[in-house]
């Protein structure tokens, strides 16, 4: 039992990271209507900013903030230069896929060019200690990830529901034309959405990296988990991203331990989740049914 609890918390801790990436994906989906297949690579890029600042000597938490800012700038630039000229994703899905694939390859290669192919270690924000509950040991880092996710979710809630900027973002997500007619600077709002998504990616990377290292492959598998999270939760729901992320995290870490058949295939539960949800209930748990129209 205590082993199950341990797996559970590892799953929840990892799931928190998928939820963080997922919230970035939802932000972009709501703003510009597309699935950003390059989200993981952009988050990885922002994580390299974190590493660089940490390497230079900044305290880790400050490096994370710096990485968020850097990531935000990269996200904004990407929107302005590449995404904005493409047009409506629902009318040209292939163009959007190709562009995000191109960004995937470009960011991956650019990271290797700038920082090389060595693996760069990153310390865990919450240290390597563990909390002991009876015979169960839970890493503080995993609990920290959950706490940070909670804070992020709360901040998102406040931003979107209680601020004028958030109101403008929701307006643009729902009806960009009318919002423009009401004086909302639409493309500046979309720009901010992309900046926000990449900034959040830096935080996700800061939690992902200590498990392995900061390198160009950091986010390739987590990206699928994040997509599974938002498919399950609903493409346009932040609550869905949180719930979905935690669920996928648990499924991915717990299931392979008990089902030998998928022991070496961590992506399998995520893939099944994506397939089943899209076939049976495309709007996921918390998404709106308008998501379904293609």
């Amino acid at each position: 039992m205590s082993q199950f609890l341990q797996f559970l918390f590892i799953g929840l801790g990892n799931g928190a990271v998928y939820a963080m990436i997922g919230m970035g994906l939802v932000a972009i989906y709501r703003a510009t209507g597309l699935l950003n297949f390059a989200q993981g690579e952009m988050a990885m890029f922002a994580t390299f900013f974190v590493w660089t600042l940490d390497d230079v000597g900044l305290p880790l938490w400050l490096a994370v903030i710096g990485g968020m800012v850097g990531g935000g700038v990269v996200g904004a630039l990407t929107y302005q230069v590449v995404v904005r000229p493409v047009g409506d994703p629902h009318q040209k899905p292939l163009a959007v896929v190709i562009v995000t694939v191109g960004l995937f390859l470009a960011f991956n290669a650019l990271a290797q060019l700038i920082w090389g192919t060595d693996q760069r270690p990153l310390d865990p924000l919450f240290g390597t200690g563990e909390l002991q509950l009876g015979s169960t040991y839970i890493a503080w880092q995993k609990l920290g990830a959950l706490a940070v996710l909670g804070i992020e979710a709360a901040l998102f809630y406040v931003l979107f529901m209680k601020t004028k900027l958030g109101l403008s973002m929701r307006a643009v997500a729902s009806n960009p034309e009318s919002s423009g007619l009401c004086g909302v600077p639409v493309s500046r709002i979309l720009l901010f959405g992309w900046a926000l998504a990449s900034a959040v990616g830096a935080v996700a990377g800061a939690f992902m990296a200590p498990n392995s290292a900061v390198d160009a492959n950091l986010m390739q598998v987590p990206l699928i988990f994040a997509f599974a999270a938002i498919t399950l939760g609903g493409f346009d729901s932040f609550v869905g991203a949180v719930v979905g992320g935690l669920a996928i995290g648990v499924l991915t870490d717990v299931v392979p331990k008990y089902v030998g058949f998928v022991e070496k295939m961590p992506t399998a539960p995520a893939f099944l989740a994506i397939l089943v949800v899209l076939l049976i209930r495309p709007q996921g748990l918390f998404g709106s049914t308008r998501v379904v129209r293609v």
Binding site: L35, P89, V97, T267, F271, L278, L279
Partner: peptide, 18 residues
């Protein structure tokens, strides 16, 4: 047949990673 556009791309992306 039931999953189109960006969503089909997502499913195939998952297959590729799997």
């Amino acid at each position: 047949l039931r999953i189109k556009g960006l969503y089909l791309a997502l499913v195939t992306l998952a297959v590729a990673t799997l």
